[in-house]
């Protein structure tokens, strides 16, 4: 079994709105896989189906070798899930949440204590472990939820927008935590996000999802290099002169002059940079500053969806 998730034309319709449209997704084992898309793209609905919360209108999926429709309980035992919205009881302690989860998922009694300690170690709640969760900070609640999802040693962990609404430091600590998790455990993480830097930093592979369909799949690095659009920005006294000398080079896709600034869109910026400088030198053109920028995932997203991720989905059906 190479893939932990394999969906087969999975579809979810609400009345006349198609939230997920015939998606075929393959998630390799022991990877961190990202579903990237604007709000309302269908990410949460897809995760709800994969975690057996919602049943698909059409199609199905195989998770850890089990069918999500016919073998829902086996699927449930194979997965851990951290919902987008909070799912904690404010009047139970952190430890009690873990104990309860372990019992509900049938973790054998003799290893339960050990597992709980192991998770508590990982999520470092410190002395708040035995306090009610209503006294926890946003980051602690998140860590507890992630830790809880790990108690029964799932093969697959779903994280639905794990850092939504968290401040930058907390977000970074959650990222570190997820990194640690995948390095030290036999686990696959499927996360949804609409934070591009999150997908970029964490995921081995991503799928861009929009209007309920997968538009593009690949490793973030590959997707970015496929764009062939490094940007070289220079300031110099006579940008027109330099441009006229180099504009016939095949590496240049596009160029733009604003005042004393020359901007070039090129395929392999790092290879082209020395050439420009030597041309400028031989023609006695003095370059004041020069900067090379690789494309971000943002540009990848714009290329495949035609808009920025923060613009949201045009036909968003709201949260279901």
């Amino acid at each position: 079994m190479k893939y932990i998730i394999e969906t087969k034309n999975i579809t979810k319709r609400f009345d006349d709105f198609t939230a997920v449209n015939s998606i075929n997704l393959k998630v390799p084992k022991n990877s961190v896989y990202g579903l990237l898309g604007p709000n309302g793209a269908g990410k949460s609905t897809l995760i709800s189906m994969l975690s057996t919360i919602k049943s698909p209108t059409e199609g199905t999926a195989i998770i850890n070798g089990y069918d999500i429709i016919k073998e829902a309980n086996d699927v449930r035992r194979s997965i851990g899930i951290v919902f987008q919205s909070r799912a904690l009881d404010d009047i139970l302690t952190g430890r009690e949440h873990l104990e309860m989860h372990a019992a509900l998922y049938g973790v054998p009694k003799d290893v339960r204590e050990e597992r709980i300690e192991e998770v508590l170690d990982l999520i470092s709640l410190g002395k708040k472990t035995d306090e009610y969760t209503k006294n926890y900070s946003g980051g602690m609640k998140r860590r507890l939820e992630i830790g809880r999802g790990l108690i029964h040693h799932p093969k697959l962990l779903f994280l639905d927008e794990p850092t939504l609404g968290l401040d930058i430091q907390t977000r970074e600590s959650i990222w570190e935590y997820i990194e640690e998790l995948k390095d030290n455990n036999d686990i696959t993480v499927l996360l949804t996000t609409h934070y591009l830097e999150e997908a970029d930093n964490l995921c081995d592979e991503i799928s861009i999802i929009d209007h309920g369909e997968i538009i593009k799949t690949g490793a973030p690095k590959e997707l970015k290099s496929e764009l062939k659009s490094d940007t070289i920005t220079m300031t110099l006294d006579n940008p027109e002169k330099l441009l006229s000398l180099i504009k016939n080079k095949s590496a240049i896709n596009n160029s733009l002059i604003t005042g004393d600034e020359l901007r070039l869109m090129v395929a392999k910026g790092e290879n082209f940079l020395p050439e420009i400088i030597s041309i400028a030198n031989t023609n006695k053109l003095f370059i004041n500053t020069i900067e090379l920028k690789h494309p971000s995932l943002e540009e990848v997203f714009i290329k495949y969806t035609g808009r920025k991720i923060t613009d949201g989905a045009k036909t968003a059906g709201g949260k279901r």
Partner: peptide, 16 residues
Amino acid sequence: IDKQYGFLKEIMVAPL
């Protein structure tokens, strides 16, 4: 209230 706080999900998704 469990439903509104989301805690019901945690219970409903358990293999039970």
